[in-house]
Design a protein around this nucleic acid. Sequence first.
DNA 1: CAAAGTGTTCTAGTCAACTAAGACACTAGA
DNA 2: TCTAGTGTCTTAGTTGACTAGAACACTTTG
Lengths: 138, 138
Amino acid sequence: MEFRIDRSSGLPAYLQLVRQVREALRLGWLGPGDRLPTVRDVVARSGVNANTVLKAYRELELSGLVEARQGSGTFIKAGLGSTDPEVMAALRARLAEWVREAREAGLDIEDIDALVRSVLAADEDGNQITAGDGVAVL
Amino acid sequence: MEFRIDRSSGLPAYLQLVRQVREALRLGWLGPGDRLPTVRDVVARSGVNANTVLKAYRELELSGLVEARQGSGTFIKAGLGSTDPEVMAALRARLAEWVREAREAGLDIEDIDALVRSVLAADEDGNQITAGDGVAVL
DNA sequence: CAAAGTGTTCTAGTCAACTAAGACACTAGA
DNA sequence: TCTAGTGTCTTAGTTGACTAGAACACTTTG
């Protein structure tokens, strides 16, 4: 497991860590029994403070995804991704192809990002009732 | 132009505003001469403080995208999206189709999001030298 | 001119995120 | 048993995001 902390993104570091673990679980890169990098490991390599890492790990523990064993490490407790890895790989391949097409059409990363976000937002609106949960639409 | 402020996302409100204006420019929804919602408008509808909105608009102004005219409003100064609208629409349609497939395969929004992010991250790594710019890879 | 609507500034304060450095408690392995 | 590696806690402090409320400056319209 490798973390990427982007300090310029505006998103709090501990949330970036949480998100990345969750994503790794979604994608099947991590599964029950796997050990996360040690707190000191993350600290040493990213410069993030130990308390920040701890906060991320604690949040993951509270949501039941990991289990911290003092003296030994932090381990994945439950999985998240329920999708067949092969299906996942196929979808991934087709998405990668779409990205390639977009790039060939001259779009840069930000263009692609904007497009993706707008499509996902539209999809979310059409399929789920999320209004009210802290989301204001004006 | 409609803004969506998601207080639970962890991303500062003013950055959400900035991002949404930039995205609208990328997608061609906004162009030079268009007027952004007034500061008081955003305040009234979202509950965000005037200073927060102002901070977002100021950031957009600093990057040369909008122009604030005191007493009259804030207007788009320059465009961002350079891509042909038709090409954009085509790409959008194909992406929407991909999303539909993903949903049919049983993926939920978070699965899709994780997949998209990982593909985009891989793409970015392969095509651009972004190391060093505040991004730590561990 | 007057009024309404616009961006702008100010002061004061709260809260979350993060840093810093150290100490403690527990576990696994030599 | 000792030691290195682990998670955990404590205290103290800095910074940025945000809120609150008010006032000011300017433009447009009637």
